[in-house]
Computed example of a mutant assay.
Amino acid sequence: MDTTQLLKGVLDLAVLAVVRDEDGYGYDIVRRLRDAGIGDVGDASVYGTLRRLYSAGALSSYVVPSDGGPHRKYYAINPQGTRMLDEQTDTWVQFAVAMSGLLHPHAKTQDTAIFRPRPEAGAQR
């Protein structure tokens, strides 16, 4: 299955999840998404998503000087972004549970806990 279409629908959620625990600059966020197993993510898609989330008020940004190159623009999740992340996580969990039920109709339980982030993940903010 081509994951490109799936990724278009959840890239906002993925980016918010990546910056939930640690601020990051564009390429760092791309790398962290790829390290998490989302290898099909394109640089331009992530940069566009960062700009869109920033414009929507879900992220704040700040510039950090660099000794070895250009300054880096870091993005951080803010309270509005945390609310957006929580809402989109709920939507994702409901969708994932429904899909799991379709794909595994004879499973005895539909444990939503496997689709939720670790409780301690957002505890620092």
Rank of each mutant, 00 (worst) to 15 (best):
L6R: 07
R32Y: 09
R32Q: 05
D43N: 15
V18P: 05
A98V: 06
A14D: 05
V64C: 06
Q80A: 08
I114K: 07
A98Y: 09
A107S: 14
A96Q: 07
P70W: 01
D40V: 15
L33F: 08
T49L: 11
D23I: 01
R118P: 04
G9I: 03
R20K: 05
D43P: 13
G26E: 13
P65F: 02
W92H: 11
L50V: 04
R116Y: 02
G68D: 12
D35W: 09
P70Q: 03
A98C: 04
I114L: 02
E87H: 12
P79W: 09
F95S: 12
H104A: 03
I77E: 08
A98D: 01
T3V: 13
W92S: 11
M99N: 05
T49V: 05
T109F: 13
R116W: 06
V18T: 13
L85G: 03
R32N: 09
L13Y: 10
R20C: 04
K8G: 14
G37T: 00
K73L: 09
P65S: 04
S61A: 09
Y25K: 07
P119W: 04
Q94G: 10
L50D: 04
A44Q: 15
A14L: 14
Y62D: 06
V46Q: 14
P70V: 01
V46R: 13
R52F: 01
R52A: 11
V10R: 12
T82K: 05
M1D: 10
T3F: 15
A58W: 06
F115Q: 01
H71T: 00
G48A: 09
T4C: 15
R31A: 15
A56E: 07
V64G: 01
A56F: 07
S66T: 02
D67Q: 00
D12I: 00
M84I: 09
